[in-house]
Design a protein around this nucleic acid. Structure first.
Lengths: 139, 139
DNA sequence: GTATATATTTTAATGATTAAAATATATACT
DNA sequence: AGTATATATTTTAATCATTAAAATATATAC
């Protein structure tokens, strides 16, 4: 046991360095996925969130991203213009707008992952599960 | 072994859900640190980066954040107005502006971590090291 | 059937970022 | 030394994303 007794200030310094590195690595990982695409990080996350839960209301999306409803309108306008999502009126309550992935949206998501070989997809999946478990112990 | 043979599309679905969760958790973790502070995420990261490497040139900061030099001027103006950093001219080359943490900046960083008890600081440090190692296997 | 509440969009203002011009300083060449 | 060129930063004007609040459309309650 070489160093089991770090000073608090050293630990904080370590934490700061790790946060910087992790932030860089997350960014790089997302960049690998969106490489060559016309997609911002939040557009990617919205597509992913719709893949997880299709037909979200504008209000729910606003809450998900912690932004105002007006911002959701703008975000969705852009993805709709790219034909990745579509607005549909809820027939039960015609005030509500539900955002759904189009076939092109679904296809785009598949394409994003086509750049990775099967074995790497498996590696990524298991790694992210582990990262998620670790993160949940400190939030 | 219940399920060692997931379809590619299922794996992708898993990956998407994990990315969403991890993104949320990182955000929450940063929010825990900046709780109650007048600091945006990038201001926090800049303070941390200066803690790691004090006296960075404006140009280096621009490269670090992948933004233009003009954006760095604006970012640093804000932190300088809050007295957390200070501009100093490099005496060897007076075109260069180096950003350094002020004592108040150093103090603010310490304060950010004061909200966590010692044992949790240790827990966070070891967890982030592990997360970093995992992330580096997929970037 | 009128008033009130809710969901979304629109609008005008604000803030962050960019590209390009301006400024200040340094280096290279003659 | 003096002129041209290169580099580091700041300033400026324009663009883009976001907000708060008004407008619009629809639903619910009394």
């Amino acid at each position: 046991m070489i160093n089991d007794n770090l000073q608090n200030s050293d630990l904080i310094h370590n934490i700061i360095e790790e946060i910087i590195d992790i932030q860089k690595q997350s960014q790089q990982f997302v960049n690998r996925i969106t490489l060559g695409e016309q997609l911002t990080q939040s557009q990617l996350v919205l597509l992913f969130q719709l893949k997880k839960q299709d037909g979200m209301k504008a209000t729910d999306i606003a809450e998900f991203f912690h932004v105002t409803p007006g911002a959701v309108t703008a975000m969705c306008d852009k993805l709709e213009k790219q034909s990745y999502i579509e607005r549909t009126k809820d027939p039960k309550d015609r005030r509500i707008v539900k955002m759904v992935l189009t076939p092109q949206g679904e296809q785009k998501i598949r394409e994003l992952f086509n750049k990775f070989p099967e074995t790497e997809i498996e590696k990524i999946a298991t790694t992210l599960v582990q990262v998620n478990k670790l993160m949940s112990t400190i939030t």
